[in-house]
Simulated scan of single mutants.
Amino acid sequence: MIKKPVTIKKNMAMEDRPVAHLVQEASQVYIEMEDKKINAKSIMGMMSLSLQEGEDITVVAEGKDEKEAVAGVEGFLTTRK
């Protein structure tokens, strides 16, 4: 299992489009924020976090592709578009 702290650098707002793109990156990945742990494949769960630019989260992944999964989610959350 890998846990990696990430600071969000993308304006996620409450739009569903960025969250839908994030869910496509996820593979056995969870987002931890404060006392919540959300499956990154759950669009509703991810939207419930209301992620904002500048917030710190932890990306958690398990499995043989965990390094690639964490890198993909981190890249998505830290690349401004």
Rank of each mutant, 00 (worst) to 15 (best):
V29G: 00
H21R: 14
A20L: 14
E32G: 00
K9A: 13
K36P: 03
V29F: 01
D35S: 12
A13W: 12
A13S: 15
I8P: 05
M33E: 09
I38C: 01
I38D: 04
L22Q: 01
T7E: 15
A26G: 06
M12E: 08
K10T: 04
V23C: 10
I31Y: 03
N11S: 13
I31A: 03
K37S: 05
V23N: 07
D16W: 13
S27V: 03
V19H: 06
K4P: 02
M14L: 14
E32C: 07
P5C: 06
A20E: 13
K37E: 03
A26T: 02
V6N: 09
K36W: 06
L22I: 00
D35K: 13
N11H: 12
R17G: 09
L22K: 00
D35E: 14
H21P: 00
M12V: 10
M33Q: 11
V23K: 06
I38S: 01
K10S: 03
I38E: 00
I8W: 02
K4M: 09
K10R: 11
S27Q: 13
E25C: 10
Q28Y: 14
Q24H: 08
Q28I: 13
E32L: 10
E15I: 09
K37C: 06
I38G: 02
K4N: 05
E32Y: 05
V23E: 06
K10Q: 05
V6W: 06
R17L: 12
K37W: 02
K36C: 06
S27Y: 09
K10D: 03
I8G: 04
K4L: 08
Q24E: 12
A20N: 12
P5Q: 13
P18Q: 03
N39A: 06
E25G: 00
K37D: 01
D16V: 14
P18K: 05
A13E: 15
A13Y: 10
V29T: 09
P18F: 03
I31T: 03
S27C: 08
P18M: 02
D35I: 01
T7V: 15
L22T: 02
P18L: 05
V6M: 08
A13T: 14
H21N: 14
M33G: 04
K9H: 12
R17P: 02
Y30D: 10
Q28S: 15
E15P: 02
K4S: 09
K37T: 10
A26E: 01
Y30K: 11
M33H: 11
D16P: 10
L22N: 02
D35H: 15
V23F: 01
P5W: 00
P5Y: 05
D16A: 13
V6I: 14
K10E: 01
P18I: 04
K9T: 08
D16Q: 14
K10G: 00
M14T: 14
I31S: 03
N11I: 11
Y30I: 04
Q28H: 15
V6L: 06
Q24S: 11
K36Y: 08
P18S: 05
K10P: 03
V29N: 00
D16K: 15
A13P: 07
A13Q: 14
Y30N: 10
V23I: 08
K36E: 09
M14W: 12
A13C: 15
L22V: 02
S27F: 07
P18D: 04
E25S: 04
Q24N: 12
V23S: 07
E25M: 10
K37F: 02
K9Y: 09
V23R: 06
K37Y: 00
Q24W: 01
A20K: 15
M33Y: 11
